[in-house]
Simulated assay, not measured.
Amino acid sequence: MTQTIYDFDYTNNKGETISFSTYKGKVLLIVNTASKCGFTPQYDGLEALHKTHQHDGLEVIGFPCDQFGHQEPGNDDDIASFCEMRFNLSFPLSTKIEVNGQNEAPVYTWLKQEAPGLLGSKGIKWNFTKFLVDQNGNAIKRYAPTTKPKDIEADILKLLGK
């Protein structure tokens, strides 16, 4: 049987286990984030996408990660406070995770397999790599950290039927 994202769960930054199946029928944008990265201002664009399209069925989920240049050094409370104060984030964040290696989050193992990067690469290269998942739980596309959230909007609108 083919896996979908609905076969996985994650722990939110409040310590609660969330099944991805709670997002059935929604388009997901999954992003590994960091608070002290050159791409951190993308939080503004991610929040804009979330606020603009949430009522149409988009959910953005941030996965803080400290694997790239130690750019997410804080604990889950520090990260949440930073995101709320600096970016007024309203989309969910997970606990801090790893996206590569022996301790990578299982959902990232699946995402990387389903939507490989440039030339078929599997590993996440840096913070703010983004994955678009359709309403049926299939990983559709991977976007580089340099891809601005607004440049993903057309793909999101297509999935939302807009």
Rank of each mutant, 00 (worst) to 15 (best):
D78V: 08
L28E: 05
G123M: 11
G74Q: 07
S90T: 15
T17V: 12
Q135N: 10
D56G: 05
N127G: 05
I152G: 05
V31T: 11
Y6L: 09
D78Q: 09
Q54K: 15
E47G: 08
I5L: 13
N32Q: 03
K130W: 07
W110P: 07
L132K: 01
Y23M: 07
E114Y: 00
M1Q: 12
K122F: 01
I5F: 07
V31R: 02
K148P: 03
V31Q: 02
E47M: 12
S121G: 14
P73A: 10
Q113G: 14
L89Q: 00
K150N: 14
L29A: 07
E16V: 04
L159E: 13
Y6V: 01
K24C: 05
T4F: 02
R86I: 04
F87V: 03
Y6E: 03
T129A: 04
L93A: 07
K141V: 09
P149S: 11
N138H: 15
G15D: 04
L58I: 12
D151S: 14
V107Q: 00
D56C: 03
S19V: 03
F82C: 09
N75C: 13
L119M: 15
T40A: 06
W110H: 15
F39H: 11
L119N: 13
T147K: 15
A115P: 04
M1S: 10
E114P: 02
P106M: 09
L46T: 11
G120F: 01
F82R: 11
M1T: 12
N32I: 01
G25D: 10
E114G: 02
K96H: 08
Q67A: 09
G123R: 10
G69R: 14
Y108A: 00
N136V: 00
I97C: 02
A105Y: 00
C83I: 04
E47C: 06
C37G: 06
I30C: 02
F63K: 06
G38F: 04
Q3A: 10
M85T: 14
K141N: 09
L28A: 00
D56K: 15
I97L: 06
V60R: 08
F68H: 11
G57I: 11
F131S: 06
L49D: 01
G45D: 09
E47H: 08
D155I: 09
N136E: 14
